[in-house]
Nucleic acid binder design. Structure first.
Length: 943
DNA sequence: TCACTGCATGGCT
DNA sequence: AAGCCATGCAGTG
């Protein structure tokens, strides 16, 4: 401390007799930025507003309140905040000033007075139920630069020393600024005076719901916004108010200088740090693009959507932009929704000048917290906690990846998180859904003259919450505890408008829906390093972020994802997916038995559709049975009935009596089972569907996916379908290909050569289909070649680079053949053809292949792995054929691939010789099929 | 070889 | 066109 009194026996008060106080209490902010330390007695006097009466009774500067006549001291740093200077001259005590402020028709003038209100008075007069955010007991909490801290209730107050103007700044690391390290703030430098009449409306003050004040949100301003304010901004604002009050706008600049220069840090400067929530009311009409709004300090950048419904709905056009307008009703709810200037929060944040922030005054909608009032209520529970949604963010693959870094939206970070000046940042305590506290490192990286904020060390938390890419984390604050809560919303959950977005919480402000979803951690998958997400994401609706560079939608798609509730993620088992495949019209599938499993084979792309079955009754009438996706009851429909993507009983216009879910099912489950089992096609799946009624909801989600996919048409047609899945960037939500249906890398069963899982079986089955096609093409090709040879008898045929090589030939030199992608895709596997079965994938099927990329070579691992499957598939298929098929039914493919009937390696060698493709094979065989299904299943007709 | 860290890159708003 | 930010990637241990 620079004061001579600092040499005093510990108590800063030179008049104090206390030599060695047991403990020191915080007093007023000194000009050097430090805080006067007082003994208990002096500190108590200070806190109670008796300091000057006690120690300065004989000093000059005593005046009488113009209103109540009370004697007030206005001549020292201690008492500075206890008086208000009146426009007409004279002074008022804070009590009167406060009263007048509240009641005055034009509340503008007193605003600065509040800045001067000594803490004790502030607390008493304002009856602020502080929603204070982060003024918690922890050191971390004190890092928060939240304006509302100024209005912390006593509970908070006790956690800290009495709130003095500078003190808060110090707590937030602003002391540095005061010490001269504070960089120039554009908002200050460019600060313009704004007509008070534009910034404040008396009605606002008068009509503020009590809780507004109770929350410390001071009317229009809401918590987050308040939080967003930086001390600097507040200071600026305070200055402005102060100067306005003094009727000397021009003197603002000098004042700013005072703030920035510790040596000149006068009490007046200190005032600037004493923003008052009430003053926040003054910002509404600040032109949003007016940088001067930065000074706003008082104007919370964000206001709750509620506010648009309330008496304080005075915001500009942006105020109308709240997302789900009806979603949030709590007055205290705050968020960026209103779009009210957020410039202030960033202009001088972190002590760095904010460049051009015009037009970026509010958070992007994608970060708006979409929490309903109900959710807030649930979060706050029975307690008096006040939940302040701050922002939310959908987890990207990077966020959810193992790297453990959650990229924070810059504005959010700067608005709601503590100010950090060093890249190392600081630890941040965050409470998760289960009330568990985590400490993340909140830091930033310099990035293009800007910053990139991240939360590090989030992996454990994210895993704990079972979050994946596509899920959304929400940051809220619980007051008065001031805890930062990291809630979450699963991608599968309904959007806020459904009021399902977040959920009852576990008392700590955490939504429960996620917990519900994650009740069984076993069903959750982790996001692997590649950013794949598990298909098990419960529910069907998902909005998955994709790799930015592989996405055709980019950031724009984010909003689409958010808003497009039709987006769903495949969540069915492979078996279920199999059951969704129907033979195309006028085609009858071949039933193939592989390892005792019955599979359909389609000569052409199958139809994708809802799980219906179309039996024929005794009189030859054909009809269709379809399952309601709500109640899982099966309903009978005309055979030619076209089904929507989601069919429920309510869609049953054909049978009004059974157009509600409450209507009884026409057939018993047993009868249905009989029907299903008697149906030859897709028996496994359909039988299962009939039997496992309880699982039909889940299945139907998958059906939804597939049906939607079919209805929506081919991939790029709609954003939803064009969006690559995180699981497999090249695939689309709803993709039923083997890549997408198989558990993510590292999850699920290992695929050994003897594996008989559905995935492997499917690979085998499709391999056979491929072989059949290839055989057919090959035959055609050979015929064509023969014709050519006849035409050029005397000349040796040109190497047909463009043609499919014979099945038995080495295809290593084959090049891309646009005419025969199926074939040409197989060439890339050549380098790996002869590799032994030692896949580096260790038995897994690597999903990270890009079937569409015919010009690329899949990793060797893919090749090996897939090849192994093909080997195995063929092997088993042959075995099966030998067992179950007659000689006359021999598959030409078999004859060709396994002429020797050998097994094992021999078989593998034979197969290697077949240009069947490696990693591409999957995509070749599968993905195109998926697309075909999409196209051919446009009606979901499945019969 | 892997995990981690910090910065760079570039698509997108 | 500046800035944001998802992601890549080199360096390091």
């Amino acid at each position: 401390m620079s004061s001579s009194s600092s040499v005093n026996s510990g108590c800063f008060n030179p008049d104090c007799k206390e030599v060695k106080p047991e403990r020191l209490r915080k007093g007023w902010r000194l000009r050097n930025g430090e805080v006067a330390e007082l003994c208990d007695r002096c500190g108590s006097a200070y806190e109670e507003g008796r300091y000057c009466e006690t120690f300065h009774s004989d000093a000059a500067g005593w005046r009488n309140c113009e209103s109540c006549g009370k004697r007030v001291h206005c001549g020292c740093i201690v008492s500075f905040h206890a008086v208000a200077l009146l426009d007409a001259g004279g002074v008022e005590c804070m009590a009167c000033a406060n009263k007048n402020f509240i009641m005055a028709p034009n509340p503008v003038w007193p605003s600065p007075l509040f800045l001067h209100l000594p803490l004790p008075d502030r607390l008493k007069d304002l009856s602020v139920k502080n929603w204070n955010p982060f003024a918690g007991p922890s050191a971390v909490a004190t890092q928060w630069r939240q304006a509302p801290n100024l209005w912390n209730a006593a509970t908070v107050q006790t956690e800290l020393h009495p709130r003095m103007p500078y003190e808060i700044d110090r707590l937030n690391g602003i002391d540095k600024l005061i010490s001269g390290e504070r960089p120039p703030a554009p908002g200050m430098e460019k600060m313009k005076s704004v007509d008070q009449s534009e910034r404040v409306t008396s009605s606002n003050h008068k009509t503020l719901p009590p809780e507004r004040f109770a929350n410390g949100n001071a009317g229009i301003d809401t918590a987050p916004a308040s939080n967003a304010f930086h001390r600097e901004e507040m200071a600026v604002d305070g200055l402005q108010h102060s100067r306005r009050f003094a009727g000397d706008k021009e003197s603002i600049e000098p004042k700013k200088g005072v703030i920035a220069e510790p040596g000149r840090n006068t009490p007046a400067a200190g005032i600037n740090y004493e923003a008052h929530p009430n003053v926040n009311m003054s910002v509404q009409s600040i032109p949003k693009d007016d940088k001067s709004s930065s000074h706003v300090g008082f104007g919370l950048p964000y206001a709750s959507p509620n506010e648009t419904n309330g008496p304080t709905k005075v915001f500009g056009p942006q105020a109308q932009r709240q997302t789900p307008p009806s979603a949030i009703t709590k007055p205290f709810l705050a968020g960026p929704h209103n779009g009210v200037e957020s410039t202030a929060e960033t202009l001088v944040r972190n002590g760095r000048p904010r460049g051009d922030t015009r037009g970026r005054h509010h958070l992007l909608p994608r970060y708006w917290p979409r929490i309903t009032d109900q959710e807030l209520q649930q979060i706050s529970g029975d307690s008096n906690s006040v939940i302040t949604p701050l922002f939310e963010k959908m987890l990207s693959a990077s966020d959810a990846g193992r790297i453990g870094r959650l990229v924070l939206p810059k504005k959010c970070a700067e608005a709601y998180f503590p100010s950090i000046s060093q890249p190392e940042g600081l630890p941040l305590k965050v409470q998760d859904a289960r009330g568990k506290e985590w400490v993340f490192q909140f830091r930033f990286w310099p990035n293009n003259n800007s910053r990139m904020y991240v939360l590090e060390g989030v992996t454990p938390c994210i895993q704990s919450m079972q979050l994946q890419a596509g899920d959304t984390v929400t940051f809220s604050r619980i007051d008065p505890e001031g805890k930062l809560v990291m809630g979450f919303r699963k991608a599968s959950n309904a959007p806020p408008s459904d009021q399902e977005m977040q959920t009852p919480k576990s008392g700590n402000g955490v939504p429960k829906n996620g917990e519900v979803n994650s009740a069984d951690p076993s069903v959750w998958s982790k996001v692997d390093k590649s950013g794949y997400i598990a298909k098990e994401v419960s529910g069907a609706k998902a909005s998955l972020p994709t790799k930015r560079k592989s996405s055709t939608l980019g950031s724009k798609s984010k909003r689409l994802r958010i808003e497009n509730e039709d987006l769903i993620e495949l969540k069915i088992t492979w078996e279920e997916a199999q059951g969704l495949l129907r033979p195309p019209p006028n085609h009858f599938p071949n039933i193939v038995m592989i390892e005792g499993h019955e599979f359909e084979e389609y000569g052409e792309a199958p139809v994708l559709g809802k799980p219906t079955f179309c039996p024929t009754n005794q009189v030859g009438e054909k009809f269709k049975w379809v399952q309601c996706e709500d109640c899982s009851k099966w309903r009978k429909l005309p055979f030619d009935e076209l089904l929507p993507s989601r069919w429920t009983c309510s869609n049953n216009s054909w049978d009004p009596k059974r157009s509600t879910c409450s209507a009884a099912q026409e057939l018993t489950t047993e009868q249905l089972e009989d029907l299903l089992s008697s149906k030859s096609t897709a028996a496994p799946k359909k039988t299962k569907a009939a039997k496992q009624v309880t699982e039909t909801v889940e299945a139907s989600e998958g059906l939804d996916t597939l049906a939607n996919l079919a209805i929506l048409g081919e991939g790029e047609a709609l954003p939803s379908s064009s969006q690559a899945t995180t699981k497999h960037p090249r695939h689309r939500p709803g993709c039923s290909c083997i890549v997408c249906i198989q558990p993510p890398s590292g999850k699920g069963p290992k695929h050994k050569p003897t594996c008989t899982c559905n995935v492997c079986l499917t690979v085998k089955r499709r391999f056979r289909t491929l072989m059949l096609r290839r055989e057919k093409r090959q035959s055609e090709k050979e015929a064509e070649t023969a014709r050519k040879k006849q035409q050029v008898l005397s000349q040796p045929p040109e190497p047909e680079q463009e043609d499919d090589p014979p099945l038995s030939s080495n295809t290593s030199n084959s090049s891309s053949n646009p005419k025969h992608p199926l074939v040409t895709e197989t060439v890339d596997e050549d380098p790996y053809r002869k590799r032994p079965f030692s896949s580096p994938l260790k038995g897994q099927i690597d999903l990270n292949i890009q079937p569409e990329r015919e010009d690329e070579t899949s990793p060797a691992s893919d090749s090996c792995s897939i090849m192994r499957l093909f080997h195995d598939a063929t092997e088993r298929y042959l075995r099966e054929q030998r067992l179950s098929s007659s000689a006359s039914d021999r598959d030409p493919i078999i004859d060709q691939i396994a002429p020797g009937g050998g097994g094992g390696e021999a078989m593998g060698e034979e197969l290697d010789g077949v240009p069947c493709g490696s990693g591409h094979l999957d995509g070749d065989m599968d993905h195109p099929v998926t697309l075909s299904m999409s196209m051919s299943a446009s009606t979901s007709a499945t019969c």
